[in-house]
């Protein structure tokens, strides 16, 4: 660092420079809402570039779940891992994305604790930009995680009857649902302002939703009360819809509709709440 120069340099020269800089910086144009959102998305991408560890959740969870659950339950439930994959993979996709969503909330809480959040809040930009920018980077992560699940499935012998369009439609549905969960954890993060607490809360919610669902087994053999829960569990509907889209089976319109409704309802509740909490002044 060239610090000593700053002390010894004649003050007049530097004063002149900073004076000119300040005079030149007086133009004021408010950043557009989309430009600001894209900038926050870019910030998240730059953070990944400098600290690739940030991607661990989006990589490890899909790999772990896909491989582990296929070989863990594959033989027992469907006779062979290959058959079971047809049933399991869309569900594992749903569960992986759902679990990955909570880390976005943790990152937001981290921003709040380090003060980066307040620096951004003190700017004159559309208040939704910070949240929307976060969603943009979340969407990229979820697509990345989805690609890993699908690629692993193909390697292990999964052949979707719905082909590429079916898989893409399923991924789009799951990612959309994941983004609504992102908003939920964003609201939680702004409330509790502690990354570890966000993860704890999200785990308590997501673990039962993931396992008490039709992701791993058809609910036919479950007790009645559990069947009732599975039937209303939004993750069941998303998994069923993804399964239908990927295997090109008929009659999944209902599940797709339920998934979209769940996505819309969670978004409609959490988006305004998140924005409110974002602009809240303690």
């Amino acid at each position: 660092m060239s610090a000593p120069a700053a002390v010894t340099r004649p003050a007049a020269a530097q004063t002149h420079q900073i004076d000119i800089l300040l005079a030149a910086g007086r133009s004021r144009r408010r950043a557009g809402a989309l430009a600001a959102s894209a900038t926050f998305g870019r910030r998240a991408m730059l953070k990944i570039k400098h600290d690739p560890k940030q991607l661990v959740d989006s990589v490890a969870i899909p790999i772990l779940f896909t491989v582990l659950f296929t070989y863990l339950f594959g033989g027992a439930i469907s006779g062979s891992p290959g058959d079971y994959l047809k049933f399991l993979l869309p569900g594992v996709l749903t569960m992986s994305i759902a679990i990955v969503t909570m880390y976005g909330g943790a990152r937001l809480a981290q921003d709040v604790t380090t003060g980066a959040f307040d620096r951004f809040r003190a700017l004159s930009v559309w208040r939704g930009a910070f949240v929307l920018g976060g969603l943009l980077s979340d969407a990229a992560r979820y697509l990345f995680a989805s690609a890993i699940v699908v690629a692993l499935g193909l390697i292990m012998g999964y052949r979707p009857d719905g082909g590429a369009p079916g898989v893409l439609a399923a991924v789009a549905l799951v990612v959309a649902f994941g983004l609504s969960l992102s908003l939920l954890w964003a609201a939680v993060a702004l409330l509790v302002r502690d990354p570890a607490v966000v993860i704890s809360i999200a785990n308590v919610v997501l673990m039962p939703l993931s396992f008490a669902s039709n992701i791993f087994a058809q609910p036919g053999t479950m007790p009645g009360w559990l069947q009732a829960f599975v039937a209303v569990n939004p993750l069941s509907h998303v998994a069923t819809a993804a399964r239908g889209l990927m295997s090109n089976a008929g009659g999944t319109g209902g599940s797709v509709a339920w998934s979209l409704i769940a996505t819309a309802v969670i978004t409609a509740v959490c988006a305004p709440l998140t924005l409110r909490l974002y602009s809240r002044r303690g």
């Binding site: 004021r28 910030r43 400098h50 380090t114 003060g115 980066a116 620096r119 003190a122 700017l123 004159s124």
Partner: peptide, 18 residues
């Protein structure tokens, strides 16, 4: 907000970024 700037420990920069 359009005309003031804040620096200090409560409004920090991004440590991960250059």
């Amino acid at each position: 907000r359009a005309r003031v700037a804040v620096t200090g420990q409560f409004a920090a920069l991004d440590e991960d970024l250059t």
